[in-house]
Computed example of a mutant assay.
Amino acid sequence: MTTLLLASASPARLSTLRSAGLDPQVRVSSVDEDAVLAEGRERFGALEPADAVLLLAQAKAEDVTRALEQTPAEATISAEAHQEPSDVAALPDLVVGCDSMLELDGEIFGKPADAETAVARWRTMRGRSGVLHTGHWVVDLRDPEDGGTGGTLGATSSTTVHFAQVSDEEIEAYVATGEPLAVAGAFTLDGRGGAFVSGVEGDHHGVVGISLPLLRELLDQVGVRWTDLW
Rank of each mutant, 00 (worst) to 15 (best):
residue 223 G to Q: 01
residue 204 H to W: 12
residue 85 P to M: 07
residue 94 L to Y: 05
residue 182 A to P: 03
residue 226 W to G: 06
residue 185 G to V: 10
residue 26 V to I: 03
residue 118 A to V: 15
residue 17 L to V: 08
residue 55 L to D: 10
residue 37 L to N: 00
residue 197 V to G: 12
residue 129 S to H: 09
residue 73 A to Q: 15
residue 115 A to H: 00
residue 26 V to T: 03
residue 43 R to I: 02
residue 133 H to S: 05
residue 82 H to G: 12
residue 205 H to L: 05
residue 37 L to I: 02
residue 137 W to V: 13
residue 201 E to V: 14
residue 201 E to N: 13
residue 195 A to L: 13
residue 112 P to W: 04
residue 23 D to F: 10
residue 68 L to H: 03
residue 173 A to I: 02
residue 192 R to M: 05
residue 123 R to L: 12
residue 160 T to N: 08
residue 22 L to G: 08
residue 88 V to D: 13
residue 34 D to C: 00
residue 21 G to D: 00
residue 77 I to H: 03
residue 95 V to W: 03
residue 10 S to W: 00
residue 206 G to T: 09
residue 162 H to N: 09
residue 66 R to L: 07
residue 116 E to T: 07
residue 141 L to P: 08
residue 76 T to S: 13
residue 52 A to N: 04
residue 38 A to V: 02
residue 27 R to P: 02
residue 191 G to R: 07
residue 15 S to V: 05
residue 4 L to C: 15
residue 160 T to P: 04
residue 180 P to W: 02
residue 23 D to T: 14
residue 225 R to I: 00
residue 15 S to T: 11
residue 160 T to Q: 11
residue 148 G to T: 06
residue 144 P to K: 03
residue 47 L to F: 13
residue 53 V to H: 03
residue 150 G to Y: 14
residue 134 T to P: 06
residue 103 E to I: 10
residue 62 E to V: 12
residue 188 T to R: 10
residue 170 E to H: 04
residue 230 W to P: 01
residue 209 G to W: 04
residue 46 A to M: 10
residue 79 A to D: 14
residue 191 G to H: 05
residue 148 G to R: 04
residue 222 V to A: 13
residue 25 Q to R: 14
residue 51 D to L: 10
residue 220 D to W: 03
residue 202 G to E: 09
residue 90 A to K: 12
residue 227 T to I: 05
residue 199 G to K: 12
residue 61 A to H: 08
residue 182 A to Y: 07
residue 42 E to W: 00
residue 211 S to Y: 05
residue 49 P to N: 08
residue 29 S to E: 03
residue 39 E to F: 07
residue 94 L to N: 01
residue 223 G to L: 01
residue 151 G to A: 15
residue 30 S to P: 00
residue 90 A to V: 12
residue 96 V to C: 13
residue 24 P to A: 07
residue 50 A to E: 11
residue 56 L to V: 14
residue 159 T to G: 06
residue 196 F to Q: 06
residue 117 T to N: 08
residue 3 T to C: 14
residue 24 P to G: 06
residue 174 Y to W: 06
residue 185 G to F: 09
residue 20 A to K: 13
residue 98 C to D: 02
residue 104 L to W: 09
residue 166 V to I: 15
residue 224 V to T: 09
residue 77 I to S: 05
residue 76 T to N: 12
residue 83 Q to D: 14
residue 50 A to M: 04
residue 41 R to V: 09
residue 206 G to K: 09
residue 33 E to Y: 03
residue 19 S to K: 08
residue 209 G to C: 11
residue 175 V to T: 01
residue 102 L to M: 15
residue 24 P to E: 05
residue 29 S to P: 03
residue 180 P to A: 06
residue 183 V to N: 00
residue 201 E to D: 15
residue 178 G to C: 00
residue 126 R to N: 14
residue 93 D to F: 00
residue 5 L to D: 09
residue 177 T to D: 10
residue 71 T to L: 02
residue 8 S to I: 03
residue 18 R to W: 02
residue 143 D to M: 05
residue 142 R to E: 06
residue 190 D to Q: 11
residue 189 L to D: 08
residue 229 L to N: 00
residue 167 S to K: 06
residue 90 A to N: 12
residue 144 P to D: 07
residue 176 A to D: 14
residue 67 A to S: 14
residue 55 L to K: 13
residue 202 G to R: 09
residue 17 L to M: 13
residue 13 R to H: 04
residue 63 D to V: 11
residue 121 R to N: 01
residue 221 Q to E: 12
residue 164 A to C: 10
residue 31 V to M: 07
residue 133 H to K: 03
residue 188 T to F: 06
residue 133 H to Y: 09
residue 162 H to A: 13
residue 161 V to R: 05
residue 155 A to Y: 08
residue 168 D to E: 06
